[in-house]
């Protein structure tokens, strides 16, 4: 069975932990965030005839991306970026976060979840924003940790990318 490390990257309050909680049953309490700055969960996914054990490193979100604890990123086979669709600056910082992450660990498969899609009234992103992301090679999914919409798709897509990456 293949094991892969995925880091969840995103600003404070974008819903990384909620996404993981939607995706897996958490063993560790969330207090690890405040103490160690990271919480790790596991999820097994089946992709065709391959089973992949995903280890999800949920990094504590920071208000300022420069505080990103890059040492936790080391060894990641994939990155799961999260932005809050109702907060524009969390979207704006995605590019800088990606640059920083790649600077540390090199080019790995990644995905971006525009979270809180259930809050349509407060949604702050427009079509041109999606286009900008796509143009910059982001794979974009709209997710809602509350309803579960798009969550599985995002994780499975990333897992598949990582496996594919290995094959090539």
């Amino acid at each position: 069975m293949i094991q892969k490390k995925i880091c969840m990257v995103g600003m404070f309050g974008t819903g990384k932990t909620s996404l993981i909680r939607q995706f897996v049953y958490s063993k560790f309490s969330d207090k690890y965030h405040s103490s160690v700055g990271v919480k790790i969960d596991r999820k097994q996914v089946h992709l065709g005839d391959a089973t992949v054990n995903l280890l999800l490193w949920d990094l504590a979100g920071k208000d300022d991306f420069e505080d990103l604890q890059t040492s936790y990123l080391r060894g990641s086979a994939g990155l799961f970026f999260v932005a809050d669709g109702t907060r524009r600056n969390s979207y704006d910082q995605l590019f800088e976060l990606r640059r920083l992450a790649f600077e540390t660990i090199g080019d790995v498969p990644y995905v971006v979840a525009l979270n809180k899609a259930d809050l349509t009234d407060l949604w702050a992103l427009q079509q041109q924003d999606y286009d900008a992301l796509t143009k910059a090679h982001w794979h974009v999914l709209r997710t809602s940790a509350k309803t579960g919409n798009g969550v599985n798709e995002a994780f499975y897509w990333l897992a598949a990318e990582m496996i594919k990456n290995k094959a090539t």
């Binding site: 094991q3 892969k4 490390k5 063993k27 790790i40 054990n53 280890l55 080391r74 060894g75």
Partner: peptide, 25 residues
């Protein structure tokens, strides 16, 4: 580098399921 478990052994019938998460932590 990755914090992934390569191998894990335990005494007796101890639960070894969370070796991966523990390794990561």
């Amino acid at each position: 580098e990755t914090g992934l478990p390569l191998a894990h052994v335990a005494q007796g019938d101890r639960d070894t399921q969370d070796a991966d998460v523990i390794s990561g932590m």
